[in-house]
């Protein structure tokens, strides 16, 4: 007679408990770990958590903690919301063989509860870096600073960061500046923010793999030159940078103001090439300007869909 009621899970050998945990999804692991101090300790002992990546999301309606398996077969999202309609709601959808499970918890103070959940998850899954942070900067404007402070205090860095705002009238310049000053972003930065200050003077994080800044009027040619030089010639440091995307700027002007003393080659407009942009998407481009990076790779600057892009290949 199995499964029996009241199963004494603590009587199993550790490896069997670990096998059981492997068969559970992260939401179940989190639910198990909050039963008692002992279950928390047991949950923390598992050795396979490196297979999960942690995604945090802050937006108007819901704050989320997502755990994705690296094979992306199952992703679990724990949402905390003040929307009573979503209490206890479990959503599950399957797409291309991948299952996404969302569980919603109601809270009168979602931000506080989200912080507690983040702390708990980071502790249980032994994570010091967030794989993906997505933040709606005009969702909790008054709380942004405390939220960034919380992240700064609890994680070493963020691998991929996406920032956006829903109402472009909202001014989130200060919060954006505070985030760039206080969070270390390792791989990707994508901003859809509407920076109001033309002289917004913040340094772009170094050693990124991908940078996409929409509404990038605040990145003048001087800053762009600084960035290009930094990423093209890093004095023996490893090159990670693969892709840049900014608002439209004229290639001739860019060449005149940024590349004037950098050896480069203007490729004829009749020459068509396939280049990788973000998320490994290939697009066909015509012409462009090539420069050689000191590791031998070529960076091509080009205009496509009225966007200024650079792809390293």
């Amino acid at each position: 007679m199995v499964p029996p009621k009241l199963f004494p899970i603590h009587r199993l050998p550790f490896l069997a408990i670990e096998e059981t945990f492997k068969a559970m999804d992260p939401i179940e692991i989190i639910n198990f770990s909050v039963i008692s101090k002992r279950t928390r300790t047991v949950a923390k002992l598992m050795n396979f958590y490196s297979k999960y990546s942690i995604h945090l999301s802050v937006k108007n309606s819901t704050l989320k903690v997502g755990l994705y398996r690296t094979n992306e077969m199952v992703s679990c999202i724990y949402g905390i919301t003040s929307n009573e309609k979503k209490i206890g709601k479990i959503k599950e959808k399957e797409k291309d063989g991948c299952i996404e499970r969302k569980v919603y918890n109601y809270s009168k103070n979602p931000l506080e509860e989200w912080k507690q959940l983040c702390k708990h998850v980071l502790d249980i899954f032994k994570k010091q870096t967030i794989d993906d942070l997505s933040m709606q900067m005009d969702a909790l404007v008054d709380q942004n600073v405390s939220l960034i402070d919380f992240l700064k205090a609890n994680v070493k860095s963020v691998d991929e960061c996406c920032l956006y705002q829903l109402d472009k009238k909202n001014n989130v310049d200060e919060n954006f500046a505070y985030l760039l000053d206080n969070l270390k972003i390792n791989k990707e930065l994508c901003s859809h923010l509407h920076v109001k200050n033309d002289n917004f003077d913040k340094k772009i994080p170094k050693s990124l793999r991908e940078l996409r800044i929409y509404n990038s009027h605040w990145i003048g040619y001087e800053k762009l030159m600084e960035f290009v030089l930094q990423e093209m010639d890093r004095n023996g440091k490893s090159f990670e940078f693969k892709y840049l995307e900014l608002d439209r700027r004229e290639l001739d002007r860019f060449r005149e103001l940024v590349l004037y003393d950098i050896p480069h080659e203007v490729v004829d407009g009749g020459v068509e090439r396939n280049l990788k942009i973000f998320q490994n998407i290939n697009i066909e481009i015509s012409g462009g300007i090539d420069i050689r990076r000191i590791d031998g790779k070529t960076a091509t600057f080009f205009l496509k869909y009225s966007v200024f892009m650079m792809s390293v290949h």
């Binding site: 199995v2 499964p3 009621k5 009241l6 199963f7 004494p8 899970i9 603590h10 199993l12 490896l15 069997a16 096998e19 059981t20 945990f21 492997k22 068969a23 559970m24 999804d25 179940e28 639910n31 198990f32 909050v34 039963i35 008692s36 002992r38 279950t39 479990i90």
Partner: peptide, 28 residues
């Protein structure tokens, strides 16, 4: 065999919240 047994235990806990889990497993 170990894996199938553990999968059965995981199945007992599948889709359960903390309160429901307490009803299924015994802890000291």
């Amino acid at each position: 065999l170990t894996s199938y047994c553990c999968e059965r235990i995981a199945r007992m806990l599948r889709g359960k919240n903390t309160q429901e889990m307490i009803k299924v497993i015994t802890l000291p």
